[in-house]
Amino acid sequence: MDKPGHWMEDPTGPGAHLREAFIPLRDYTFDGLPQKIVDTVKGLPFRIDGLMTCVDAFLPGIARAAEILGLHTVPAEAYRRAGDKFQTRRLCPTHTSIKVDSLAAFLADLGKRSEPLKYPLVVKPTRGHGSEGASRVENQQELVEAVTFAFYTTSPLYSYSILLLT
């Protein structure tokens, strides 16, 4: 299963020998992915033994679909937590991060802080690949620009919130 036109779809392509069938997956949202997979798998004329992905961002959804289908998997919650940089940093005894859930809330709260932020800071989406959307900032203007950039230019699959590492 993948988006229509994926290289695995070509029956004479380089990946044709790796699969029995290709099922185009259309019209799904990130949150709706598990149920879309479940509905698709239940409609197939053959048995599915497992689900996998090569894209980290899809791991929680794929695992949730596997749970629903009764297939062997690591718990979806484990993937969700492991892929969320804010959640994993909270496990550290010197937790020094701030979670920003929306640009509007961040801008409204920025001037209301009881203690000013100490620079430099690192702005990073809580989910994503490598350093996509990450910035080091030296002042408030750079901070606002970096948070705006992280919310609006990184993939919507990854940017649930922004993490300020102090």
Results as ranks from 00 to 15, higher is better:
Gln140Leu: 10
Lys42Gly: 03
Thr154Leu: 02
Leu33Met: 13
Ala108Cys: 11
Ala108Asp: 15
Thr148Gln: 13
Pro93Lys: 00
Gly50Pro: 03
Ile48Arg: 02
Pro125Ala: 00
Cys54Phe: 13
Arg64Trp: 00
Met52Glu: 09
Tyr152Asp: 12
Phe46Trp: 12
Phe86His: 08
Ala57Leu: 13
Arg19Ala: 10
Lys85Leu: 00
Glu145Arg: 13
Ala63Ser: 10
Glu77Cys: 09
Tyr28Cys: 07
Phe46Gln: 11
Pro125Asp: 03
Tyr119Leu: 03
Asp39Ser: 08
Leu51Ser: 02
Tyr152Pro: 08
Pro125Arg: 01
Arg127His: 10
Gly130His: 05
His129Ser: 11
Thr154Lys: 03
Glu142Val: 03
Thr40Trp: 05
His129Val: 09
Ala134Ser: 14
Pro34Leu: 01
Ile98Gln: 07
Thr148Ile: 11
Phe86Ser: 01
Leu110Phe: 13
Glu20Met: 07
Ser135Met: 11
Val123Pro: 09
Phe106Leu: 06
Leu18Arg: 12
Lys36Gln: 09
Leu69Lys: 04
Gln35Ile: 06
Arg89Phe: 01
Val55Cys: 11
Leu18Met: 08
Asp101Glu: 13
Ala57Cys: 12
Arg136Cys: 10
Pro93Asp: 00
Arg90Ser: 02
Ala150Trp: 01
Glu138Ala: 07
Thr153Asn: 15
Arg127Asn: 05
Gly32Asn: 06
Gly32Ala: 06
Lys36Arg: 14
Pro11Phe: 01
Glu115Cys: 12
Lys99Asn: 07
Leu110Arg: 15
Val55Phe: 10
Asp109Gly: 15
Val147Phe: 08
Arg81Gln: 11
Asp49Ile: 06
Leu33Asn: 08
Asp56Trp: 09
Arg80Val: 05
Ser131Phe: 02
Lys99Pro: 07
Phe149Arg: 13
Thr126Tyr: 03
Val137His: 12
Val74Asp: 04
Thr154His: 01
Tyr79Lys: 07
Gly128Asn: 04
Lys112Gln: 15
Thr53Gly: 06
Pro11Ser: 02
Leu59Ser: 05
His72Ile: 11
Gly83Leu: 15
Gln87Pro: 06
Leu121Phe: 03
Pro116Ser: 09
Ile37Pro: 05
His95Gly: 04
Ile62His: 00
Arg80Met: 09
Val100Ile: 13
Leu69Asp: 01
Pro45Gln: 02
Leu71Val: 03
Pro125Cys: 04
Ala16Gly: 05
Ala134Asp: 01
Pro34Glu: 00
Ile62Tyr: 00
Ala57Gly: 12
Phe30Glu: 12
Thr96Gln: 10
Leu59Arg: 11
His17Gln: 08
Pro24Glu: 06
Asp84His: 10
Arg81Cys: 07
Val137Arg: 09
His17Pro: 00
Gln140Trp: 06
Phe22Asp: 04
Pro45Tyr: 05
Cys54Leu: 14
Ala16Asp: 07
Thr154Ala: 05
Ala146Gly: 03
Gly61Glu: 00
Ala63Asp: 01
His95Arg: 14
Gly111Val: 06
Ala63Thr: 05
Thr73Met: 00
Glu145Asp: 15
Arg26Asp: 11
Arg64Thr: 00
Val144Met: 12
Thr126Cys: 10
Cys54Pro: 12
Asp101Trp: 10
Ala78Cys: 14
Val123Ala: 08
